[in-house]
Simulated assay, not measured.
Amino acid sequence: MKTLKITALVGLVVLVSACEDAAFRELGPDKTIDRGIDSKHLSQLQAGIWVDPNGCDHWIIDDGVEGYLSARLDKYGKPVCSGVAPPTYTAGDFKKGATSLIGDPI
């Protein structure tokens, strides 16, 4: 029974390792592209600002299926803490770029 479990585990690892495509191995995943049904570059979606519990801003995009969050940084790489909203709240219509499966705005 132990041999069967080890064989099954090795087979599973080999099977899953084959899921990686050549572009991923060479360049890594391109995280600037939405890969949903109506995929588009993230710069074409509407971003909002979520304020973390410390009061610092994060860019947020929700396209209905996937969500994206990134720290908002100044030109020196330091966090921006603008006070645009209270901590743990969002500002802006970050769901504006979302569409339903038939293409109507949600």
Rank of each mutant, 00 (worst) to 15 (best):
M1L: 10
M1Y: 03
T3V: 09
T3E: 14
K5I: 12
I6P: 01
T7K: 04
T7A: 14
A8P: 11
L9E: 09
L9R: 12
V10G: 04
G11P: 07
G11E: 07
G11S: 13
L12S: 04
L12D: 00
V13S: 10
V13R: 03
V14H: 00
V14A: 15
V14L: 15
L15K: 00
V16T: 11
V16D: 01
S17G: 14
A18N: 01
C19D: 01
C19V: 00
C19H: 03
E20V: 07
E20P: 00
E20W: 03
D21Q: 12
A23M: 00
R25H: 06
E26N: 15
G28A: 09
P29T: 04
P29D: 12
D30E: 14
T32A: 13
I33W: 10
D34Y: 03
R35H: 12
G36R: 13
G36W: 12
D38H: 14
D38E: 07
K40A: 10
H41P: 05
L42H: 01
L42W: 10
S43T: 06
Q44H: 04
A47L: 06
A47V: 10
G48E: 10
G48K: 11
I49T: 15
I49K: 11
W50L: 05
V51M: 03
V51N: 07
P53W: 08
N54H: 06
C56W: 04
C56F: 05
C56M: 06
D57F: 01
D57H: 01
H58P: 09
W59T: 01
W59K: 03
W59D: 03
I60N: 07
I60G: 03
I61R: 12
D62T: 03
D62G: 04
D63S: 04
G64L: 10
V65P: 01
V65L: 14
V65K: 09
E66F: 10
E66V: 02
E66W: 08
L69Q: 05
L69S: 08
L69V: 04
S70N: 12
A71T: 00
R72G: 07
R72A: 08
R72M: 12
L73Y: 00
D74L: 11
K75P: 02
K75T: 13
G77H: 02
K78C: 00
K78A: 09
P79R: 15
P79H: 15
P79C: 11
V80Q: 11
S82L: 12
S82G: 06
S82N: 14
V84D: 06
V84P: 03
V84E: 09
V84W: 07
A85H: 01
P87F: 15
P87L: 14
T88D: 08
T88A: 09
T90D: 08
T90L: 09
A91H: 13
A91E: 06
G92A: 13
G92R: 11
D93N: 10
F94K: 04
F94W: 13
K95H: 02
K95N: 04
K96S: 14
K96W: 12
K96F: 15
K96P: 10
K96Q: 13
G97N: 14
G97A: 15
A98P: 02
A98G: 03
T99W: 02
S100W: 15
S100F: 11
G103P: 02
D104Q: 12
D104C: 03
P105K: 15
P105F: 06
P105Y: 11
I106E: 01
